[in-house]
Nucleic acid binder design. Structure first.
Lengths: 161, 161
DNA sequence: AACGAACACTTAGCAAAGCTAACTAATTCC
DNA sequence: GGAATTAGTTAGCTTTGCTAAGTGTTCGTT
């Protein structure tokens, strides 16, 4: 919210926090988009690649659920990553309907590079953020992540990779 | 990050926090989009309207800077809000190049309604969040907002509202 | 006073990413 | 074996970013 100041938690109603989180998320993404574009990846691509890199041989459906988008959206996103040589897809030998997605060496490297860029950006931003503030941010991360994830656990298949 | 758990801050490097914030912002927006769509507004529209409602008679350029988008993007966004009757634009009498934007009564009402929806959604989500966690979130909000805003203050003109 | 530079905004056109609807192919179930 | 279900893709639309280029206004210099 475009309020000039946020005086502690005496005014921190859930309404206030919800609106401020919403606004902060929008603006944070717009800032990070600049850094992400340096990797040649867009935000959604970087996010999906991150899931693939850390998740092993994920299926497209799982990836769509994890990223909270519909299958067609993820299908196109993955197609872009394949075209860029960052992931490869393979038909599952057991259930030939499903597509398993793996990161390539280049995919892993690019993710690391993007991470490095965000680190440098964040490190610069953190110059004006004290140790206590950083600590508070770390403490809040788990809660923020819970709020940002859908309520149910999406996993139905195990990784086979 | 798709890590199964985040054990406190012993592993909380800036790299980790940067990546997790990035991912959390993406997913939070995707969740809130569902609620926002119930108001008939998209995320960027809701965010811009919020600035107009709380900011008075903002100029289009200031609005673009506040929202971290280019003027053409904001121009079209505002056009949509005008078409929906949520804001009105007026030529500045002093400098006839600039466009001043004001919220209408409907605009204010709709923003409040959207806020109510997000509140209900967040309240539901907060069922699984303890008082201490909420407190940590509140403490971190100011820092998050600083990270999400561009480093420089964008205001060059005063509100004339 | 006039002319060019600078500024605020708009228009035009492109790309990415979200969606739904409709389709194909494979699996499961009766 | 055939119907229903599931996984994924294709097609087509909307929104929202962007840049480039155009219009109109103001400023500054002479």
């Amino acid at each position: 919210m475009p309020r000039p100041d946020h005086p502690g938690d005496c005014l921190a109603t859930p309404a206030e926090i919800a609106t401020r989180l919403h606004s902060a998320a929008i603006h944070l993404l717009r800032r990070l988009r600049v850094e992400d574009s340096a990797t040649g990846l867009t935000g959604p691509q970087a996010s999906a690649l991150s899931v693939v890199v850390f998740g092993g041989a994920v299926t497209l459906g799982d990836l769509a659920r994890a990223e909270q988008v519909r299958p067609p959206t993820m299908s196109r996103l993955v197609a872009g990553l394949v075209r860029s040589g960052l992931v490869v897809t393979r038909q599952d030998p057991v259930d030939r309907r499903v597509v398993r997605i793996r990161a390539t060496v280049q995919g892993r490297a690019l993710l690391q590079a993007g991470r490095g860029r965000r680190v440098r950006r964040l490190a610069k931003d953190l110059e004006g953020v004290g140790r206590g503030e950083f600590r508070a941010l770390v403490d809040a991360m788990t809660t923020i992540e819970r709020l940002s994830r859908p309520p149910v656990a999406p996993s139905s298949r195990k990784n086979q990779g």
